[in-house]
């Protein structure tokens, strides 16, 4: 048995296409990303941790991860409900509603940013109303969460919707014939089966929210220690020519993001073991 890199194939063009892929991948993605690693190592171990453990940085982490978590949680609840609506309920014009769900993906973040800021500002359409019942959204952590709900909204819907569409109605019939009430069928059969896509959607929405910049900065107010998100802090450091500091924070953020993706993959391969049909 000799080591074989590639199984033989009659199709041409393998060397050319793979070579081009690797070259392009290396130049556009890997080379710049390696700059990140090298630059952060310039700080040394101590310097790296001094940078990311600075109170202002820590406050931004807490805010960014906290608001992202909250926004993703809200999207789990409402996203699942919207997915249910789109799959299970008859309603005129549902195709249009279905298409509009993707707006947060399609709308440039700067546009959603100024729109949300305008909407929730103290004299904006919703701002006036919320102010009157004592809720302040713009320039608060709540405002940041609102923006993150907006940009993460399609994820849970788009992961749960196909799962619900493909769910075998016979499973519900089986549960029902065994004596389960509608509520029992929902909690014991439907929701457990929707759990993998819900968790995937949650993780995707969370990961996206952590790195979000454009839709947040207009509504955030950007007060250090209070409403300053990590992405903005990186830009601030850059503007002060503190490349190493900016890089350290970016690396910390990236590590968390990659850990999350790893977690998704692990979870999916774990759940895939016995959840395949």
């Amino acid at each position: 048995m000799s080591f074989r890199f590639k199984e033989s194939s009659v199709l041409p063009g393998f060397g050319l296409s793979l070579g081009y892929t690797l070259l392009y991948l290396g130049l556009i993605v890997l080379l710049p990303l390696s700059a990140l690693v090298v630059k952060s190592s310039e700080l040394g171990f101590g310097g790296f941790f001094r940078t990311i453990l600075d109170p202002r940085v820590l406050a931004s982490f807490k805010l960014t991860f906290g608001a992202s978590l909250a926004a993703a949680a809200v999207n789990v609840v409402f996203g699942t409900i919207v997915a249910w609506f789109l799959v299970r309920i008859r309603f005129p014009g549902k195709r249009v509603i279905d298409a509009i769900v993707d707006l947060p993906f399609a709308l440039p973040t700067a546009v959603s940013g100024i729109a949300l800021a305008m909407l929730y500002s103290p004299n904006g359409k919703l701002g006036i109303f919320l102010q009157s019942i004592g809720i302040k959204v713009a320039f608060t952590q709540l405002g940041i969460t609102v923006a993150l709900i907006f940009i993460g909204l399609p994820f849970v819907i788009r992961t749960v919707q196909p799962a619900l569409e493909e769910m075998d109605r016979e499973l519900e019939e089986a549960a029902s014939s065994l004596g389960a009430s509608r509520t029992q069928t929902l909690t014991k059969v439907i929701l457990p089966l929707l759990m993998p896509p819900i968790i995937t959607g949650f993780t995707l929405a969370f990961a996206r929210a952590v790195g979000e910049y454009g839709s947040v900065i207009f509504i955030a107010g950007n007060m250090p220690m209070k409403t300053e998100i990590t992405s903005l802090l990186i830009i601030t450091k850059l503007e002060q020519y503190d490349y190493a500091g900016a890089t350290a924070i970016a690396v910390a953020m990236l590590v968390v993001s990659l850990a999350l993706i790893l977690l998704i993959n692990l979870f999916q391969s774990w759940s895939g073991k016995h959840l395949v049909r």
Partner: peptide, 11 residues
Amino acid sequence: AVSPVVSGLIY
């Protein structure tokens, strides 16, 4: 997986 700001930063 890389946030937009970091994508700019690396360049």
